[in-house]
């Protein structure tokens, strides 16, 4: 593996960072309130990254100098790593401080698959990004996680074991009969699936199940399920993808 040591590598990963939502533009009051919080758990907040959310302020048309608030936060010991819901002026100020701007809309609930249709009018009126390039660059590191990272399992999932993934679940080994795999996102099984597989368990109807060899006891997407008895013989032991269409589970062989 180390024969050709690469200079760098890109990895997709999810970070958790606290978001500071401001309701007032009184910087002195903000500083005081923050200092109180920090005093409660100084170690916890020390050098903590922070995303500043200005949506509430801008809803109330309360202006705030971003450079000033960023300075205050640094003094207290936080590292501002992102801004969201800022107005044009604030976004410009953030850019000048090399602080990324999150342009993600409020409720992006679409699944990770399929073309999620987003009508124009759901966009918030405020702060449409003029800097899409920055958005692409900052997304993995500083945006609050909209989709949890995928979970990768290389060990076989034995009878009686349960795996739950908050995002996508990718399994390289077989899933035995009597095992249960669940994901809020999609499920991929690059081997034989004999147990139960439940994708989109929080109601994501766009979630899909993919597997190399379908022998599942039960498959479910967003609560709609089929047991092995209901599975068509033609797709049994075949590589398939499973998705929802009008509340019907569609099982299609992957040619």
């Amino acid at each position: 593996m180390l024969n050709t040591s690469p200079v760098l590598e890109f990895k997709s990963s999810t970070f958790f960072a606290p978001i500071l939502i401001l309701f007032k533009n009184d910087i002195a009051a903000i500083e005081l309130a923050l200092q109180e919080k920090v005093n409660l758990a100084p170690e916890f907040f020390k050098d903590s990254p922070l995303i500043i959310d200005l949506r509430e302020l801008n809803k109330q048309n309360l202006d705030l100098d971003f450079i000033q608030i960023a300075g205050v936060l640094r003094n207290i010991g936080f590292f501002p790593v992102g801004i969201r819901g800022g107005n044009e002026q604030q976004n410009k100020q953030a850019s000048s401080l090399f602080i990324p701007i999150d342009t993600a809309r409020e409720q992006t609930n679409a699944g990770t698959t399929g073309e999620a249709q987003k009508p124009e009018n759901t966009k918030p009126a405020l702060s449409q990004p003029e800097t899409t390039v920055i958005k692409e660059l900052i997304n993995p590191a500083s945006a609050p996680p909209i989709y949890a990272a995928a979970t990768l399992v290389t060990q076989p999932i034995r009878s009686g074991q349960r795996i739950y993934a908050t995002g996508d679940l990718i399994i390289m080994s077989q899933v035995s009969a009597g095992a249960e795999i669940m994901a809020e996102g999609n499920i991929h099984v690059y081997n034989t699936l004999r147990g139960r597989a439940l994708a989109g368990v929080h109601g994501n109807t766009d979630a899909r199940i993919f597997c190399f060899d379908l022998q599942a006891e039960l498959i479910s997407i967003a609560g709609d399920y089929k047991t092995s008895e209901d599975l068509n013989k033609q797709i049994y032991k075949k590589p398939v993808q499973i998705y929802l269409q009008n509340h019907a589970l569609i099982i299609k062989e992957i040619a």
């Binding site: 060990q155 076989p156 999932i157 034995r158 009878s159 009686g160 074991q161 035995s176 009969a177 009597g178």
Partner: peptide, 24 residues
């Protein structure tokens, strides 16, 4: 076979080696 499969799941999750994150 089913019971052995179940036991293998327990071996890989409830042993001391699993708890200590050592070689399985």
């Amino acid at each position: 076979v089913r019971d052995s499969d179940r036991m293998l799941g327990i071996l890989s999750s409830k042993s001391r080696r699993a708890e200590r994150n050592e070689e399985p």
